[in-house]
Amino acid sequence: MPAERGRQPGTVEERLVSVLGQRIWVHVRWGEGVPLVLCNGIGAALDELDPLVAQLNPATTVVRFDAPGSGRSAKSPVPYGFPYLAVTLMRLLRKLDVPVPVDILGLSWGGALAQQFVFQYPRRCRRLILVATATGAIMIPARPATLWKMLTPRRFRDRRYAAEIGGDLYGGRARTDPTVVAKRFDQQPVEASRGGYLHQLLAGSVWTSIFALPLIRQPTLILAGTDDPIIPIINARIMHRRLPHSTLHMHGGGHVDLITNAGKLAPVIEKFRQGEA
């Protein structure tokens, strides 16, 4: 499938798109084949996914966006939920003329949005990729000390603090090199707003997919780190049991290895998208 409207493969498009009362910053690397839509973690800007995108097939159309109140997107005037965000994402893809169906990848908080998107638009999604994520409000939670660190976006603003808590919060490579996460946060063009972060927290606090997972018919790849303090590995096993067409790939890393160890995990994603996993 060629790039839409004469866009040449490799062309990059960045702009603000107004949709459903939101002003969403998007980044599209146009290419061919089934597009890959990336949904980021809480408070994170799309730029943090640069290491992953650099490791993916350069001929693939890759769509990234900043959630309301993060990165370059404007803060939402009111709180929102994942059903509303899924509608917003679908209309965003239509405005961009992104061909469907798409493959959708959700990292952490973005995994909830990816699941909700598939619930609402099953015919618009070919494959689902869930990374370091869980089933929302009904899940096996992290330790209280870990959850406490997640309550504010301070780590995005204070690089020294991010380095101090990096290992305990993210696990994996961040345990041996706590600065690796802080360095990635340096890529954020705009600090996450407190209001935007709060809206994202609220969206996750009232949402769960635990009962609806058996309804997902798409082939699903679950990527999970065995050293993930935020999402204990048992959550990946629970999702694997409830998703009828899922593949579970466990690795020895932590919560953000998709970014800090992209060279290892990107090939797993590519094999799955090609139907080899």
Rank of each mutant, 00 (worst) to 15 (best):
S205M: 15
M250K: 12
A137H: 04
R143E: 15
L92A: 07
T247F: 02
L213F: 11
G111V: 11
E4K: 06
W207R: 04
S205P: 02
L92I: 09
L151I: 01
Y80V: 11
P83I: 09
R175D: 01
R126F: 06
D158G: 01
R7E: 04
F119Q: 14
I165Q: 08
P58G: 04
T176R: 15
E13F: 13
R155I: 01
G33C: 07
D158H: 07
R29N: 06
P77Q: 09
K264I: 06
G136C: 00
V100R: 15
L107I: 05
T260Q: 07
P189W: 03
A262H: 04
V180P: 03
A212H: 13
N57W: 10
A132M: 12
V28M: 05
S209N: 04
R143S: 12
A145R: 13
V62R: 03
G10D: 11
E32A: 14
V12H: 14
H245G: 03
S108H: 11
L198M: 14
R173Y: 04
D227H: 12
T133H: 04
G21Y: 10
D158F: 06
S193Y: 08
A86S: 14
W30Y: 12
A59M: 08
T179V: 14
L56R: 12
G225R: 08
R160Q: 12
G21D: 11
P58E: 09
R157T: 00
E14I: 11
T88P: 06
Y161N: 02
T176Y: 10
I238R: 00
Q22E: 15
V98W: 11
P83D: 08
F117C: 05
P58Q: 09
A162I: 04
R160D: 03
A203G: 11
G166K: 12
A3L: 13
P267F: 02
H199R: 09
V53W: 07
H245E: 00
E14R: 15
F119H: 14
V102G: 06
A3P: 13
I104S: 08
A182C: 02
E164P: 05
V37A: 08
A262D: 10
G41L: 01
R23S: 14
M90T: 11
P178E: 02
